[in-house]
Nucleic acid binder design. Structure first.
Lengths: 185, 185
DNA sequence: ACTAACATGTAATCTGTTACATGATTGA
DNA sequence: TCAATCATGTAACAGATTACATGTTAGT
């Protein structure tokens, strides 16, 4: 997911590491952290793989900034990450939200919709079998612990919000189909 | 968080590793994974720290099971993890939900409520500053990308569901105070 | 006969964290 | 002058993953 965020933000325009780090941290909301020890080695890895290029700006004020640009290969990799997120990433709400944050970078409208449909299928799948109930239809019915009931209620509300938005968005995409849904070239 | 889940489930009764792994995976919903390579080394670590004890059951059928019991020190550690979750854990919805799953293990009612109040404060804090807006009050107002709008909408719905439940639960706790809120001894 | 589930573990590798090092600029 | 913010990095370590090794029992 870190590669996705790095490439996703860089696809919008070049940045230097410090600003990139700030944006990635804001994406997860305030109080989220991304250490330099995570970002800079990741950038070195991506540069080695030819997905980004770092150019030292000879501004000479303070430590020299490095302007980071995404390459064509980097864009292709970003599209690939958006097109085929892992099962794990599609199953986690937070990871899916991060995919959503960059989904408009994927040029093909049909491919974007396929990602939404895949998430919708996961959310619609047989009621999330909370906990170790072999007997009951689903945990909510047998659970008595007030905190676990809260947990189930909050998770259910999030799930419903996601389903509603996905259904609405896919319905609109359906009616728009053939007009201007695709920005690929 | 892994230690919390291990100790949390063991606090309900002894288990062997395989069953413990199943429960931890179900907690995160279907399709979540916990590899053996994560669980068993973690159990070894916890045993070394004196928080759990593993006893080989001489059942002799198949690979011998190991019954895992939580120790008094393990219970104390669980209480500590529940009493003082890290800022990071309290800021993430998923991590907070996992704390909720085991919160009833914390014997002191006032301490349990303090955890809920702490989460409520984080959720009420100055509107989650999505993205890199220095100018606008908050991102939702200026965002035009439909997927980012969806992201914001889903996150907002989850946040509201959490706030509602927390407020209700704390209100009930208030009226019950002095009756039977504390199970500590 | 084969597959799935039960059951515990190790090794190599990857990824991330914390803590540190370095140093300029801006505002109180 | 002192703290905060900008800016890039390294080193030691912790934690998790994937893939493998080993073997039984129950159902098709």
């Amino acid at each position: 997911m870190l590669d996705l965020k790095i490439l996703g933000f860089l696809a919008e325009g070049p940045l230097h590491g410090y600003e990139l780090r700030r944006r990635i941290m804001e994406l997860d909301g305030p109080s989220s952290r991304l250490s330099e020890g995570t970002l800079y080695p990741a950038l070195a890895r991506l540069e080695k793989a030819g997905l980004i290029i770092r150019t030292t700006e000879p501004g000479a004020r303070g430590r020299p900034r490095k302007r980071i640009d995404i390459t064509a290969a980097g864009r292709e990799r970003l599209h690939e990450l958006l097109r085929h997120p892992s099962e794990t990433d599609m199953s986690s709400m937070l990871n899916f939200l991060h995919i959503l944050a960059f989904l408009s970078q994927l040029p093909n409208a049909a491919e974007r919709e396929a990602v939404l449909r895949r998430r919708l299928e996961i959310l619609r799948a047989p009621a999330p079998a909370f906990f170790y109930d072999d007997e009951a239809p689903h945990r909510a019915a047998t659970e008595t612990d007030p905190y676990r009931l809260g947990m189930i209620r909050i998770a259910a509300a999030s799930r419903r919000a996601e389903i509603t938005w996905l259904e609405e968005t896919l319905a609109v995409a359906q009616t728009t189909a053939g007009h201007a849904p695709d920005t690929s070239h």
